[in-house]
Simulated assay, not measured.
Amino acid sequence: MRIERVTLHTAELQYAGDAYAFAGGRSYQQFTSSVVTLATVEGIEGYGEVCPCGPSYMPAFAKGLPACLDQLVPAVLGQDPRQTVAIDDVMEQALCGHAYAKAAIDLACWDLLGKAAGLPVYTLLGGLLNDSMPLHRIVPLADPETMAQTLDTFRAEGYRHFQIKLGHAMPEDRALLRRLATSIQPEETWVGDVNGAWRRDEALRFSRALAELDIYLEQPCADYDACRSVRRHGAHPVKLDESLNTLADVRRAMEDDAMDAMALKVSKFGGLTRSRVIRDLCVDAGIPMTIEDAWGSGIATAAYAHLAASTPTRCLLNTTDLHRYNTTQLAHGAPDVQQGRMTLSERPGLGVEPDLGRLGEPVRQWSV
């Protein structure tokens, strides 16, 4: 099997709510998603999707992805897409960094590998260990009344895991969470996601003032060392996200005892090939994970859902249904969501197919 053609489509995903707002004054209503198709000489196609959460969230820029692919695609044309580690190595030699662009190709390779084997990707990643996965729902930053209403809506839809966006001035966040937390149910899991907005002293004051609340603090400070200090001296377990961008970062956090949980965003680490290694390292260390991505439609959701489904239950904190955050769907066959949980089909590969009618004409196309 050899790659003979690569095609890139882009599309705009409209957020289903009023605005997706989080710390630092960042607020988005639309996201640019990129869908890569790898076609083989045998006529089989694989699909990958990458959608950064705006240009100021993580080291990924949607408008730069075509230029990255101009460097990467010549290196992968003619290669066997089933050899995912070899493809990863080829891409690493062709372009330093830009893991998100490599992820688009890597995910399409795993889709092809599954189709060639006649197996769902979760089987190739370790087997189906979770036939139903808990979902967390993000409550965007807003005024307290709006956030309380959003929380009630999600709870009525069956969600029991919530990521509460913080990022006002710390005293306001403290009052906000104290108010929202009056509705916490015993079976619920709550994460206060600060997206790096606080100084270390602010995070510690917040944690000590709300020590009685059973919550995680996610990325309380922008700086890794400050987050590590909050982990050691605060009253809440700390979940890291933006501080972790490579396998080396994850290893360092484990060696430093700097986290109690982590957000494993598949495109940030370069796709499933590298994320699988991080997943297995966390499982061995007993670190629970939210397995997800920054944004995306059905293809991106399916990719990280296969990794989540093949993760031992004890280390899967939750995952998310990003495709349902958008008014537009770019694929058919996305994972099924019912009552705050997600399930995958038994279709081979990622189990999804792009909606070419919505994607329109290709932005780029390369061939042997």
Rank of each mutant, 00 (worst) to 15 (best):
M91V: 01
H161P: 00
T189Y: 03
D111N: 12
E12G: 03
A181L: 13
G196S: 06
L264R: 02
V50S: 04
P144S: 13
W198Q: 02
S243L: 00
Q339P: 00
E242F: 02
L113C: 09
D70T: 15
G97D: 14
C221V: 09
V250Q: 09
G351F: 06
L151G: 03
S267G: 09
L13S: 02
M259N: 05
W366M: 08
I44M: 10
L307S: 01
D106I: 12
Q93Y: 15
L264T: 05
G192I: 11
Q14A: 08
T37L: 10
T246L: 14
L77M: 12
H9Q: 01
Y122A: 13
L240P: 00
P288R: 06
N318I: 01
R252M: 10
C282G: 02
C51K: 04
Y100C: 11
V368K: 03
L113Y: 06
P140Y: 08
R2G: 11
E292S: 10
L72D: 01
V250H: 08
A94H: 07
P52R: 05
Y224H: 14
D293S: 04
V250R: 05
E49D: 03
G234W: 02
Q185G: 13
D143V: 08
P186A: 02
S56N: 15
E45F: 07
S345D: 14
A99F: 03
G127Q: 10
R82N: 12
R5P: 04
R178W: 07
D284S: 07
C282Q: 01
W295G: 02
T301S: 10
M170W: 01
Q329Y: 07
C221I: 05
M259L: 15
T123Q: 15
A62G: 03
G24D: 12
W366Y: 09
G270T: 15
T32K: 07
C68G: 01
H323L: 08
I287P: 03
L356I: 12
L112E: 09
P354G: 05
T343D: 08
